[in-house]
């Protein structure tokens, strides 16, 4: 049976790619944000597992920082979404394409 480390890594990679996929395909901005959060969780998994392998606390402390930054980013993103929603009435990314060329 495959070692747990290997399993965790594959779950992490899956989470990371799945997050990226939701970011590319989903129409709504909020779901895109969720995609990024998924990617960050994937990174956390990798960090935790790496910490297990190297038996030092750096990995877990890194996770702490990642979640800290993810939270800040989410707060900021949601506030921008609120303003956008109030102004545009919709959050689908398709109609935010006026700046191009």
């Amino acid at each position: 049976m495959i070692a747990t480390g290997q399993l965790i890594f594959s779950v992490a990679i899956f989470l990371f790619c799945f997050g990226a996929l939701t970011f590319f395909t989903k129409r709504s901005a909020v779901v895109a944000l969720m995609g990024i959060e998924l990617m960050l969780n994937g990174v956390n998994l990798v960090l935790v597992q790496a910490g297990q392998i190297y038996k030092n606390a750096e990995g877990t402390s890194l996770v702490l920082f990642v979640t800290l930054v993810a939270a800040a980013e989410a707060a900021l993103a949601l506030s921008i979404f609120v303003i956008l929603y109030r102004k545009y009435g919709t959050l689908t990314l398709e109609n935010f394409r006026s700046l191009k060329g």
């Binding site: 901005a29 993103a77 921008i80 303003i83 935010f96 700046l99």
Partner: peptide, 10 residues
């Protein structure tokens, strides 16, 4: 400006 910050943020 809002669209710019949205794009920059995402």
């Amino acid at each position: 400006s809002l669209e710019a910050s949205l794009k920059y943020m995402l």
